[in-house]
């Protein structure tokens, strides 16, 4: 397959990736979806999960996203990530520790807003562990 899709991954701080790739699999809010060249125009929000870039049928890089939005057009796939980190850079022990801390935060939260914020952070941390454990790709 010769046609490629222009893939861009941007976080608020900087442009992380901008290259033509064969396929990206984006963790959409309602399920993962793969984007090849010629994909229907879509706007989707992103759940905490792993974005995978494919080249020649193999995964070349895996990036953990904590949330954000994706805009897909037939030529382009733009991912606006809230926060992005390469999967291989993540430290399991650190995340497990932060999960324990966040659990305490959820229990210690004084009002709903605090509780919601802690629960959100907890969900992201748990998704990170799940991403590390998953054998997909």
């Amino acid at each position: 397959m010769s046609e490629k899709v222009e893939f861009e991954l941007v976080s608020p701080e900087r442009l992380l990736v901008s290259e033509a790739v064969e396929m990206v699999v984006v963790p959409g809010a309602e399920g993962d979806f793969g984007v090849l060249a010629g994909h229907a125009a879509t706007v989707s929000s992103i759940r905490p999960g792993v974005l995978a870039v494919f080249e020649n049928g193999n995964v070349t890089s895996r990036v953990f996203l904590s949330g954000g939005f994706a805009e897909v057009t037939p030529e382009r796939c733009t991912v606006l990530a809230d926060d992005a980190a390469a999967l291989e850079d993540m430290n399991r022990a650190e995340i497990e520790k932060s999960i324990a801390d966040l659990r305490d935060d959820v229990n210690a939260a004084r009002d709903d807003a605090e509780k919601n914020a802690a629960e959100k952070a907890l969900a992201i941390a748990e998704a990170k562990i799940a991403a590390l454990d998953s054998s997909m790709y």
Partner: peptide
């Protein structure tokens, strides 16, 4: 015309 996932208003 975009497809929206989830609903347009939610996004």
């Amino acid at each position: 015309l975009y497809e929206y996932e989830p609903e347009e208003s939610e996004i």
